[in-house]
């Protein structure tokens, strides 16, 4: 199978992200990491390769900082990598990104499955995976938590997806695009052999000209960014002579505050 997994570099989850005085988002000197949701996508892609053979290509759009995410995916076991960078992509939204990624899938050619994480922890839109599928004209299954069947020869895919009510089972044909949920299972650690290879990997860079497309129009702009209002938290200790009395007071309080 020819598998593509798209990844993004994001600030570390432990970073303090805020809007600075110039109105730009900043996370100080916190490190950049592979988007945590994408780790599940890489894991699912690698498990699919291990079960059905083939190769996994990791692709990321971004400047050299994207190499942080690419190297991590390579160290986990992806076979090769591509980075997409072009000065015309300085501004983007989820749809313009999807147009670039769909063009990359077409250029790679003969791809059977495309994997995404459910969303990126920075933009948090979760829109790029279905938009990419739509542009490719391929079926899309979001929030996949397990595969029941992948049949590369019969071009069939059956997956479980996580929804609020429980799990839903969907079947479709290949090629397809999936986004992977946390329930899929813990992503593997990079292996030391993978680390050695990833550290030395030369990652080719594709421009828009390489993809054969013009810079896609950006339709969603963020005219102003602001920090969320500071939350005032008050702590009140509920006292009483017995645990029952304290519990009763607590229950009254919760009802009075309309928490329940």
């Amino acid at each position: 199978m020819k598998i593509v997994v798209f990844v993004k570099v994001t600030p570390d989850t432990a970073a303090t992200v805020k809007v600075d005085e110039s109105g730009k988002v900043t996370w100080g000197d916190a490190p950049l990491v592979l988007n945590p949701w994408d780790e599940y996508a890489v894991e699912a892609a690698l498990q699919t390769k291990e079960a059905h053979g083939g190769s996994v290509t990791v692709v990321s759009m971004g400047d050299e900082s994207a190499l942080e995410a690419i190297r991590r995916a390579l160290a986990m076991g992806c076979n090769d990598a591509i980075r997409i960078e072009d000065p015309a992509l300085a501004e983007d939204d989820s749809l313009s990104t999807a147009k670039v990624l769909a063009a990359a899938v077409n250029k790679i050619g003969d791809v059977d499955m495309v994997f995404f994480g459910r969303q990126a922890i920075d933009g948090d839109t979760g829109l790029t995976p279905p938009q990419t599928a739509r542009l490719l004209g391929w079926p899309y299954i979001g929030l996949v938590s397990a595969f029941r069947e992948i049949d590369p020869d019969g071009k069939k895919l059956t997956a479980e997806r996580t929804i609020e009510e429980g799990r839903q089972v969907l079947s479709t044909q290949l090629p397809a695009v999936v986004s992977v949920a946390k329930d899929f299972g813990e992503p593997r650690y990079p292996s030391f052999m993978g680390i050695r290879k990833a550290a030395r990997a030369k990652v080719p860079v594709w421009s828009l000209a390489d993809l054969g497309i013009e810079a896609p129009a950006v339709k969603v702009r963020l005219p102003e960014l602001m920090n969320p209002p500071k939350r005032e938290v008050q702590c009140e200790f509920i006292e009483g002579d017995t645990p029952e009395e304290i519990a009763e007071k607590l229950a009254d309080k919760i009802l009075a505050e309309k928490v329940l």
């Binding site: 190297r71 991590r72 160290a75 650690y189 990079p190 030391f192 680390i195 050695r196 990833a198 550290a199």
Partner: peptide
């Protein structure tokens, strides 16, 4: 540190 060293540390 080399990239390799940094990745070893992270892992």
């Amino acid at each position: 540190l080399s990239k390799e060293h940094q990745m070893v540390v992270d892992m």
